[in-house]
Design a protein around this nucleic acid. Sequence first.
DNA 1: TTTCTTTATCGTAATATTGCAATATTAAAC
DNA 2: GTTTAATATTGCAATATTACGATAAAGAAA
Lengths: 110, 110
Amino acid sequence: MGATKTDHFTEKQNKIATLAKALGHPARIAIMEYLLKVDTCICGDIVNELPLAQPTVSQHLKELKNAGLIKGDIDGNAICYCIDEKALEKLQTYFGNITTKLALKKNNCC
Amino acid sequence: MGATKTDHFTEKQNKIATLAKALGHPARIAIMEYLLKVDTCICGDIVNELPLAQPTVSQHLKELKNAGLIKGDIDGNAICYCIDEKALEKLQTYFGNITTKLALKKNNCC
DNA sequence: TTTCTTTATCGTAATATTGCAATATTAAAC
DNA sequence: GTTTAATATTGCAATATTACGATAAAGAAA
């Protein structure tokens, strides 16, 4: 035991959970916000922006990439990372739907 | 090592990460979706809805509650759980802002 | 009061995550 | 070719998460 039972849930539930999990760390939130802030996509200075060692940042970037939240293009010996809009639209739509449904049913129980 | 360095990030970043982390498991997504689906707030049958043992579900509910995503009221010997709208509005606003900013800057690099 | 029902907690095993030093890789610069 | 710069990978220790059986707690029902 200890492993998540992903096969018992729907594909959509697992997908949203994967996206949320990838954002479930302040360093990865900080990375996303930095990628959003900078205009250029040559993001070689992410490491300098974070209070973490280079291998740790590299690992966080890998997780964001695996989850589909960011994309990375090789640009010489640097790497250009940027946000994958599709993933964020998916999240916005998901939470938008929930808040809309909540407003409709005006759950006044608790 | 192994512990997240929360003190190096902003309060807001930590807050969003906490919410995202709590949703970073398919069982907890399934719980949220079930709470959204049922009309009544007497939610004593969450366990039957999930492919997990009762202690495991109880633990997941605890985590959702700690993160502020759900509220629980005692109702006799049952417990009435429901979604805390404020947390979901926070998430919707956060991701809404990001997608808006992304649309404005139309990051055409990758 | 005894029993049933519902939910929480404890204890514990299996697994995953976090963080970093050391090292590897890869391409530009010289 | 050698050095430099940027990023990735490996290996490992510390910690956290996931899952569940056993048990506890507490009100409802008998």
